[in-house]
């Protein structure tokens, strides 16, 4: 009987661990979309992603507007639609088109918005 209880407990623990693990993987995967596709390139730029967020915020104001503008730019980057200064673009040029699909792009942008959102940080 005791053996049975121990076996069932072990099985349940294993199951819970497996579920937690899979959620973490999913979470990491989400973050990875942003981290793997955005950070590596921006890491070498003098303007951080935070600075760029503030530029976007200053230009587009609202969440939906900002996200839509950013998505449009990432899919079709143009000098005219960039929020960066001419000096910056002259030096580093405009980025290449994104290779992410719409869903991945939305995920990455959402992570980016949540990461730098000012609303929760203002005191």
């Amino acid at each position: 009987m005791i053996k049975r209880i121990i076996v069932i407990s072990l099985m349940l623990s294993a199951l819970l661990y497996a579920e937690t693990k899979s959620e973490n993987i999913k979470e990491n995967k989400k973050e990875n979309i942003y981290e793997h596709n955005c950070i590596p390139c921006h890491r070498y730029l003098p303007s951080s992603l935070g600075d760029m967020y503030m530029r976007y915020l200053k230009t587009f104001s609202g969440e939906m507007t900002l996200k839509a503008a950013l998505k449009a730019f990432l899919k079709e980057p143009l000098e005219q639609t960039s929020v960066m200064s001419n000096l910056f673009i002259d030096r580093f040029s405009v980025k290449d088109k994104t290779l992410l699909n719409d869903k991945q792009l939305d995920e990455a942008i959402n992570i980016y918005w949540d990461l730098y959102n000012v609303r929760n940080k203002l005191k």
Binding site: F60, S61, G62, E63, T65, V118, R119, L122
Partner: peptide
Amino acid sequence: YDIERVKIF
């Protein structure tokens, strides 16, 4: 408030 009339602070 932002352009979408959502309160910021």
